[in-house]
């Protein structure tokens, strides 16, 4: 059996890689990819805790389902915003989106 700590370390690494992508990448689309990685890391944690501490009750899985829903919503709205911003400013560089005026 795989120890629980492996999953947690794995998820922590994934989370930090995603975090680095969010913090350092220029392209807004790539920033969104970083966010997806972070959300996935969270899901791994949730499922691992469910499996090791909570199964067979379904409570832990519910959170995963809701995180997936939130991720889908986030991707839809985020990409819509990026496309809208691109249409107006001709850029997806996060550093150049620093004006309050649209």
């Amino acid at each position: 059996m795989i120890p629980l700590s492996w999953y947690l370390i794995f998820a922590a690494c994934l989370f930090c890689i995603g975090l680095f992508g969010v913090l350092a990448r220029k392209n807004a689309v790539t920033i969104l990819m970083g966010i997806e990685l972070m959300l996935n890391a969270v899901n791994i944690n949730l499922l691992a805790f469910w499996r090791y501490l909570w199964a067979p009750k379904a409570d832990g899985q519910v959170f995963v389902a809701i995180v997936i829903v939130a991720a889908a919503a986030e991707a839809a709205v985020g990409l819509a915003l990026i496309i809208s911003a691109y249409r107006r400013r001709q850029t997806v560089n996060a550093n150049e989106m620093d004006m309050l005026k649209g």
Partner: peptide, 8 residues
């Protein structure tokens, strides 16, 4: 960590 996985 040491807690074993629960039975499914």
């Amino acid at each position: 960590f040491s807690s074993p996985a629960r039975a499914l």
